[in-house]
Amino acid sequence: MAATARARASPLNRGAIHVVLLLYAALCLGPVLLVVVNSFKSRAAIFGAPLSLPGPATFDLIGYRTVLGQGVFVNYFANSLIVTVGSIAAVLLFGAMAAFALSEYRFRGNTALGLFLTLGVMVPIRLGTVAILNLMVAAHLVNTHLALILIYTAQGLPIAVFILSEFMQGVSKDLKDAGRIDGLSEYAIFLRLVLPLVRPAIATVAVFTMIPIWNDLWFPLIVAPGEATRTVTLGAQMFIGQFVTNWNAVLAALTLAVLPVLVLYLIFSKQLIRGITAGAVK
């Protein structure tokens, strides 16, 4: 099959495809590179020639010195990492379990429960802020990582269940029934048969869940504003407020805030692709 496909895609077509893809890649990268490149330049050069690369005359790390000199950015990274990874783990596990129950078993209230779970997609959780904060206060969870993890888990579950059950409905019934005949428990069917098959979907959900969590400003501000639990995005935002005219510092802070999420994505992306290819080859 591979041979026929290769034969059919002419070199000309391939060239055209690459041109289109490269142009779009430039569009995606441009704005980000603009921030990164300018973060290494002196103030006059940022405004004088925003499009040029830093040269010997314009290279300047003053922005990074300001940001890192201010203190505890490394702690902020650790906080963001704990919260993001913790929330993703909870969303994936709980979400996959619920999606499996909803897509696999027919029981009374199934549709109603599915709808109930999708309700959360429709209203921004931010609206419940005051009640959520009251709850966290009552449970003494203010200024803890756990508070943020719980909130983000609740926020991520509806979409996770929605996407995962869509994919789980695509898993062959024969396979599961074969498993049952072989005497596998329902838990084993879920863990050993279904989960590996929906790995691409799981990686996808992981990536989608990760982004809003990493980038959220609101709940860290309300529920965990303390120095010890402050996340990178909140830290960067406070920075922008503080140095709003100091673009060196702003650009450096923004660059630093992008890096970890990029690394996280690259990690998941490998999983994602491995999952996708596993599913396709099967």
Binding site: V130, L133, N134, V137, L217, L221, I222, M238
Partner: peptide
């Protein structure tokens, strides 16, 4: 001293006052 960005100050402060934090 624990400042919040001016844009978010009122909203954040009111939520925290309501919750007692």
């Amino acid at each position: 001293f624990q400042p919040t960005a001016p844009k978010e100050y009122n909203a954040a402060l009111n939520s925290k006052l309501d919750a007692g934090t």
